[in-house]
Design a protein around this nucleic acid. Structure first.
Lengths: 220, 220
DNA sequence: AGTATTGGATACTGACCAGTATCGTGTCGG
DNA sequence: CCGACACGATACTGGTCAGTATCCAATACT
């Protein structure tokens, strides 16, 4: 009846499988994820998985690098500086908070990967390399942004980068379990307060009370 | 030959099993943990597990409450105030940092539990209750400590408590994967800087007199 | 002491699932 | 148009493991 059904290009099969894996790993955890589920979520069967990856493990490894690239791109966008330091600071906090709330699955995957990497030395090596790279990039970006804005970061940029990375993971965990209390506004507040605490700037920072008292810019 | 071997008291069997479960869950993750391993780590067999707990799930639930009590006790100790504010601050940071480095397994378990709770609604309810309790207790402790020391916390105590809880989890993840870069000194520095950023006190700040002019009312 | 009961050990079962072997169809070179 | 190959589908295997059924020794009770 129906003529030959054209085949999906190999690259796309791969891509779909990886995407599906990301989602299922995030949902069920690495150990709990079934290869069958991943395959079907991608619209294929397990055969496709083993035709594209040597093992479940390899799929996870692939995912780490994939995630790295995505996060890296995101990180660079996230800290695009604005003009006024105050606004820029709120803006950064906002973006990070939104990232947690709106990419729950992605962040959960990140945590799952971290846990997995803490266990398996082989994955750890890969993960740590990626993670350090991201941290370094973030540190540079932060420093650059601070210079542009004419403010001073009173801790080493690497340390601030680590703080933010850790906060993101930790807050994602808290938000993941208690989204009511740990909502977007709260997340923003935490990031804002944390950033404000380590920055000393030209405009306002040490003395908000005198001038523009509490510039609570609670968008939304 | 050998006469009757005295039995281990039931309570102790339970306790040993729970301890073993904590360690194995932390090591291998919930899904990856084998009940047989837990039993043998405790010096028993699976029969003992099912004699004391209805299911693997129940064992995890038990662990959450157990962990809650332990953390609660720890939290209270952790913020025992010193005399000089500066020293107290460093002291708190130190204790939290050491907690991460020296209780790796415990903290990893905490993260595992959080992930699990994010997935299973039933566990979530239990976990969130516990977690909120701990947060509240920590907030109170912090506020009290601040009052005792005569310093002011410039964010809502609940928010600071959340920040510290999140930082602990996040930093534990980073330390778990990259203990070389994220070492004890670094952890201490992060906590110190974060705390310092949200505190305005008699000792270290230019203007103690003005007091709590701008009360930051926060979500909640 | 003798009997009942408690509680952990042992042995088993059934489900589940990563990985493999094989098959069938679409694609491509000649 | 016709083989050869690519690649995903299907079917199967072996091992693992939560949960169960049964057993047996140690305590509790009278």
């Amino acid at each position: 009846m129906t003529g030959p059904v054209p085949r999906v290009p190999r690259d796309e099969v791969r891509r779909r499988l990886i995407d599906a894996a990301a989602s299922v790993f995030a949902e069920r955890g690495y150990a709990g994820a079934r290869l069958d589920d991943i395959a079907h979520a991608a619209g294929f069967t397990k055969g496709a998985v083993y035709s594209n990856f040597p093992s479940k493990h390899a799929l996870l490894a692939e995912l780490i690098e994939q995630q790295a690239r995505a996060q890296l791109a995101l990180g660079n966008i996230e800290v695009r500086a604005q003009n006024r330091p105050e606004a820029a600071l709120d803006d950064i906090a906002e973006v990070w908070a939104v990232g947690i709330v709106e990419h729950e699955a992605g962040t959960r995957l990140l945590i799952e990967i971290a846990q997995q990497a803490a266990r398996e030395p082989e994955l750890r090596e890969l993960y740590v390399g990626v993670r350090r790279g991201l941290r370094g990039a973030l540190a540079t970006t932060l420093q650059t942004a601070a210079d542009d804005l004419g403010v001073e970061i009173i801790v080493p940029p690497e340390q601030l980068a680590l703080t933010l990375q850790a906060l993101r993971l930790g807050l994602a965990l808290e938000h993941g379990t208690d989204p009511d209390r740990v909502d977007r506004a709260t997340l923003t507040a935490v990031f804002t307060a944390t950033l404000r605490g380590v920055i000393r700037g030209a405009s306002d920072v040490s003395r908000p009370g005198t001038g523009s008292a509490a510039p609570r810019k609670e968008s939304e």
